[in-house]
């Protein structure tokens, strides 16, 4: 079963002469454990598509089915989208976007607290994730004291905290050098394979998506080709 299935997704900003069609009848489907990349030039609609998939931005038309639930069908269906984001989607950003006043450990703990996991289980999960991301020894550091690569590993650990069905990564390697960027991409691949988590990555860098299952090219809001 597809984790995410979008059909005829259209997003129009403004109206009349000022109308901008950011997405035009985009359709795609991502299966569990699949790695997909969204590529395209600036202004092609990648971020808009990512926002719609993140259940943040309301599309103008089309449908979004996420984990078997219809979230959007020419309008929100009334499901609690924030809860779905909290429980089923993990986010990795261009900059790590860690909460600066929380330590690495607390940043990973935060989404677990939001879903109400009991303290012991949450601590166990945090330790497990920080070990998995090989950052356990820096768990008590504030983000400002971590390197860019370390921050990004903590951000991935945070994204994985609630065992999400889908990870959305917005240019996760953009602020890293090539070696660190590749390491992050390797981790995302490992996560997808081992945890059966679907991963959608927006990227400009073709070198980073080696081994991805699907590559979508967006241009002027339309999916041009699918590899």
């Amino acid at each position: 079963m597809a984790v995410l299935e979008i059909t005829g997704l259209t997003k129009i900003f403004g109206s009349g002469r000022l109308e901008v069609r950011a997405l035009d009848k985009v359709s795609l489907a991502i299966q569990a454990g699949e790695l997909a990349a969204l590529m395209g030039p600036s202004g092609s609609g990648k971020t808009t598509l990512l926002l719609c998939i993140s259940l943040i931005l309301e599309p103008t038309a089309g449908s979004v089915v996420f984990d078997g639930e219809t979230i959007y069908q020419d309008g929100w269906t009334g499901l609690d989208v924030r809860r779905r984001r909290r429980e089923k989607i993990g986010f990795v950003f261009q900059a790590a976007n860690l909460i600066p006043f929380l330590t690495a450990r607390e940043n990973v703990l935060f989404p677990l607290n939001l879903v109400g996991l009991d303290k012991k289980a949450a601590e166990r999960r945090v330790r497990e994730l920080l070990d998995y991301m090989e950052i356990a020894e820096r768990s008590h550091y504030l983000p400002a004291l971590l390197s860019g690569g370390e921050q990004q590993r903590v951000a991935i650990a945070r994204a994985l905290a609630n065992r999400p069905k889908l990870i959305l990564a917005d240019e996760p390697t953009a602020s890293l050098d090539t070696a660190r960027g590749q390491k992050v991409m390797e981790m995302l691949k490992k996560i997808a394979r081992e945890n059966q988590t679907a991963v959608i990555t927006v990227t400009h860098d073709a070198r980073m998506i080696e081994g991805f299952d699907q590559i979508y090219h967006l241009e002027d809001g339309r999916l041009k080709n699918q590899v």
Partner: peptide, 13 residues
């Protein structure tokens, strides 16, 4: 901390 707040909201807080 507006960006952190946006992150919190995005991850479902």
């Amino acid at each position: 901390k507006i960006r952190s707040i946006a992150v919190m909201k995005l991850i479902g807080a």
